[in-house]
Write a protein that binds this DNA or RNA. Structure first.
Length: 207
DNA sequence: TATATGATTGCCT
DNA sequence: GGCAATCATATAG
């Protein structure tokens, strides 16, 4: 199980999100040891996407200067960089920055299937196994991820993405993204059908 | 400067 | 099913 290389994340955000299904999220935690899970749900956010944190920013192609302030600036970082942010003042969400440096984009890791360190995850979350990592805010708690990991390179330890068995198209479904109010029509959520670790959210284009 | 909102979750009725 | 938690950032004034 090898770490995914930087160029894996340099391709388009949308295809990266699709191909991240089946890959592994690994955290070699300094205190708790090795935590790992198989990715079963992702979402894509791109530079021209109204739902993206970088949507209100712009970049001068000549100078590379980014106009505007805030966390979205970090979406222009090098591919494979961790983008971790606080949502609702309560939960941390983990993204992987995509596209070449200077172009904004990221894939949100929404759900994983626990593979290693389940006992630790259970200790930290005190919930049933199937409710440990089946949501973006849940898996960061289970993996011990917060703003300490923001900006880290995810192509090597301690926190990284590793290859896994590819998920065939027959086992992959798409939908609109969950919990957003802008860019609702874009079908940029991918998940593994039949996995009991996919999040329970409702796609934003549904009632 | 002030107010509203969000890539969510879990507890309460 | 309803809603509070809790804060960074966006947007209004």
């Amino acid at each position: 199980m090898e770490p995914l290389p930087t160029n894996f994340f340099a391709e388009s955000t949308v295809s990266t999100a699709r191909h991240l299904l089946g890959a592994h999220l690994v955290h070699e935690h300094p205190a708790a040891g090795r935590l790992a899970g198989r990715i079963v749900e992702t979402e894509a956010y791109t530079e021209d996407d109204p739902a993206c944190h970088a949507s209100h920013l712009s970049r001068n192609p000549e100078t590379g200067t980014i106009t505007g302030q805030g966390r979205g600036r970090d979406l222009f970082a090098a591919p494979g960089t961790a983008y971790v942010y606080l949502i609702y003042g309560v939960h941390w969400l983990l993204n992987v920055v995509t596209e070449p440096e200077g172009t904004a984009g990221a894939v949100l890791i929404r759900a994983v299937e626990p593979m290693a360190g389940v006992d630790i995850m259970q200790e930290w979350r005190s919930r049933p196994t199937t409710d440990l990592t089946n949501g973006p805010g849940k898996l960061t708690e289970a993996f011990g991820v917060d703003d300490e990991q923001h900006g880290m390179d995810l192509t090597g330890p301690p926190l990284y993405l590793a290859d896994g068995e590819a998920v065939p198209d027959e086992e992959v479904a798409t939908s609109s993204r969950i919990g957003i109010t802008k860019g609702v029509e874009r079908p940029w959520r991918w998940y593994v059908t039949g996995s009991s670790f996919v999040s329970k959210g409702t796609p934003s284009d549904q009632k």
